[in-house]
Amino acid sequence: MDFIQSIDWIGILKCFVVGGIICIIGQILIDKTKLTPARILVIFVTTGAILGGLGIYKYLIDFAGAGATVPLLGFGANLAKGAMQEVKTAGLLGAFTGGVKASAGGIAAAVFFGYLASLIAKPKIKKQ
């Protein structure tokens, strides 16, 4: 109960709107260009890394929270942020370890759950 009372509803609204708008940008790319899903994901992750590297993306994260971190832009920005932080303590080595370290959870989860799902699930046809 305490948790529900603690929710910042304005924050949730900002998150919803910003997350939604980022997805609209993706949808326009899908419909207006002939880019494949893989290319669109690459565009988003790279753009995120650049925006993160330039220090711009953190303002969006401050504003929208998960609305900015959950889209792949956030994944890219997180990679860049990790590399930049690690460089401060480990120098050049940090450029190589920082990015993956910061997003290790996501990458490992995707690989692990992917493997797990393949053990259990069977390919099925799309019904539509």
Partner: peptide, 24 residues
């Protein structure tokens, strides 16, 4: 497993290394 998502990691991680080097 990475036929579709592999490029995301390749470009995401490479970009982060470049950002790190530039930051340095």
């Amino acid at each position: 497993m990475f036929t579709v998502a592999g490029p995301v990691l390749v470009f995401g991680i490479s970009a982060s290394v470049i950002v790190g080097i530039i930051a340095l």
